[in-house]
Amino acid sequence: MELLEAIILAVLAASTPLLLAASGELLVERAGVLNLGVEGMMIVGAACGFAGAWATGSTLIGALCGILAGVVLSLVFALMTLGLAVNQVATGLALTILGVGVSGLIGAGFVGERIATAPRLYIPGLTTLPFVGKILFGEDAFVYVSLALIIGMSWFLYRTRAGLVLRAIGDNHVSAHALGYPVLKIRTLAVMFGGGCAGLAGAYLPLAYTPFFVPGMTAGRGWIALALVVFASWLPGRLVIGAYLFGAVSILQLHAQGWGVGVPSQLMSALPYLATVVVLVLISRTRSGGSTAPAALGTVFVPDR
């Protein structure tokens, strides 16, 4: 039981950056934009988040710096792809190259520095409950924020008019435009939101996971977030399942070694990606039955005048 509790805690921690980054990207893709620069925005978020927290001693300010950094980078992306109608795939990749460089420059001054880890929730009586206490009431703020984001996003997408408009834009920007919706404006806002989430996800790593910054510490998590969005077939609820599944696989693979289970770790690591392909095929087959894939994903839109 104790071990199970510990594993769940570890899975939650490992999944949170994925969930944060993926929820941002989900909204971006729902608006019909494919930003492959998540990894770049994350790593800059990590560097700026650390810098902020290091300078002020505050996790909150660190997180805000991370968000801000992500937003700034996403604005570059928005300017390119929405303002100048440049191909989104190429721009996203270039953004990652830029992000890695920028984060290295920012982080160069912080070698061997450390900060305090993000505080965890503690409610007397609740946090000390056996088994569920720490899992439900003993996490750091990022975990709760990531879940709140998902709830907020579900509500936004399905219960508000603005959400409806955003989905309409993602499915058919030409008709949405013809109906008078400001396609580029809404997409820009979505891209900024995605940038902020990626920045926060990056900041999570030095603020809550390992309280120091090293270049390249995101280690490909931004790319996994991209895969997650597809795995979740663009549904916020499934994103939670997907993120925790990815997290669980990576944690259990380590535990399996400790238990002496002889499955090649690469096979276990590859499963989520193969599952994503299968999911993608399945949801695409039932396209007529209400597929959620944004039809205009990744396509350039220039309003006719």
Partner: peptide, 12 residues
């Protein structure tokens, strides 16, 4: 070198 993964392994 992957701080996150190293941390996960230590936890496990």
């Amino acid at each position: 070198f992957d701080p996150g993964k190293e941390a996960d392994a230590a936890k496990a």
